[in-house]
Amino acid sequence: MTKQRDLRDNEQIDEGLFEVIKEIELGLESVEKSDLVYTPNIEWFENLVVEEKKNIRKKLIFDVTLFTLVAMLVLSTILFALYSIPVVFFTIQGLVTIFIAVYFTIQHVKQVKET
């Protein structure tokens, strides 16, 4: 509140809005002073921390497992294509290379045109 008043002193505020700010301040102060908030005991907060840490760990395990599975799937598909159907493997490699080259050329041309 005091910080707020200091700021207001340093700032040019429309006279008409001064009353509005005062009203807002009064209203918010009544919320601040109300006893609407019940603070639970320290054990409740400790339980919250323990539960949340468990959730973070579960999420991490899930993410790492998913990443490993997807990586293995991609790698095995590539290896299978390379050793069993090399034609398909090299065709995909070629297409991807051409796509990347075309994509970046178009982006570069667009940027040059814009400037």
């Binding site: 639970p40 005991n41 320290i42 054990e43 907060f45 400790e46 919250l48 921390v49 323990v50 840490k53």
Partner: peptide, 10 residues
């Protein structure tokens, strides 16, 4: 430290 967390939050 979970106790420190809990105290901070409280």
């Amino acid at each position: 430290d979970k106790r420190a967390f809990a105290t901070l939050f409280q």
